[in-house]
Design a protein around this nucleic acid. Structure first.
Lengths: 135, 135
DNA sequence: GTAGATGCAAAGTATTTGCGACAAG
DNA sequence: CTTGTCGCAAATACTTTGCATCTAC
């Protein structure tokens, strides 16, 4: 495991409060991609006094600090995950909603090439695959 | 040019009303990717009596009928474009918001391969590149 | 001590919906 | 005719914000 979220906050000069610590810990433990509501539920079990406004403010702050990644998958609410070294994309099961993380260097390179072709420097991208499980 | 939106409606058994005809024509003429508000503005210039609720209902209906594609680019409202034969993805200029459409067969194939690898049949995907124009 | 964080409730956006009037097939 | 559509305004869902209070550094 690389740095904890708390360490990242220190490194980036993000002030640590009790609320932020709780939110950070819950996100670290979450291997799925919770939306704000779900995150708020989990956080509330640890400290019921934390308000949903703080959860919204904190995920936004963490996202801007490069600590969390925000995803807006099809037709739903925004969902978050901890951002670690290895970049990855998502394969979403359209039946169950299950999410599989994957990495494909070849696709990454091709994306860069496409951007170059049009005279752009690639600064970000979003790749989501939607599939049905084969029997 | 392939079929018009009106022809597609007939083909798919979607009832044609004056309002839908206007919305269809405006979308056909739009080479950008307007959001509902912008579409409503354009539509209102032709027939000011059309309500925004109808615009919302119509784009949703057209999307479900495979006539329009809905995009949810980063942090904004949903945007729409006419869906024609050739599938394409989008390269978005993060400075200006300009959108370039592109096709890359190689990436398409690799996506299918990734899904296969995890035992999935690819039914849909979303690929968005965000870039900065090089000088 | 001070700048910034929190909780609360109210305000914003974007989108959907119930309902009576109306129009397409 | 009958089923589905429209316009309107109210409702919903998600997210942000003003303000007074509190807390980390």
């Amino acid at each position: 495991m690389s740095e904890t979220i708390e360490q990242k906050c220190l490194a980036k000069g993000v002030k640590l409060t009790d609320q932020r610590r709780v939110i950070a810990q819950v996100m670290s433990k979450s291997s799925d991609h919770p939306d704000v509501d779900e995150l708020y539920n989990r956080v509330s079990k640890i400290d019921p006094k934390i308000s949903i406004a703080t959860v919204y403010r904190t995920v936004k702050l963490f996202e801007e600090s490069g600590i969390l990644a925000k995803h807006e998958f099809k037709g739903g609410k925004a969902r978050y995950e901890e951002l670690n070294e290895g970049h990855h994309d998502h394969l979403i099961d359209v039946k169950t909603g299950e999410i599989i993380e994957f990495i494909d260097e070849e696709i990454e390179n091709l994306q860069k090439k496409v951007a170059e072709k049009y005279g752009y420097k690639l600064v970000d991208h979003k790749l989501e695959l939607y599939g049905i499980k084969k029997k």
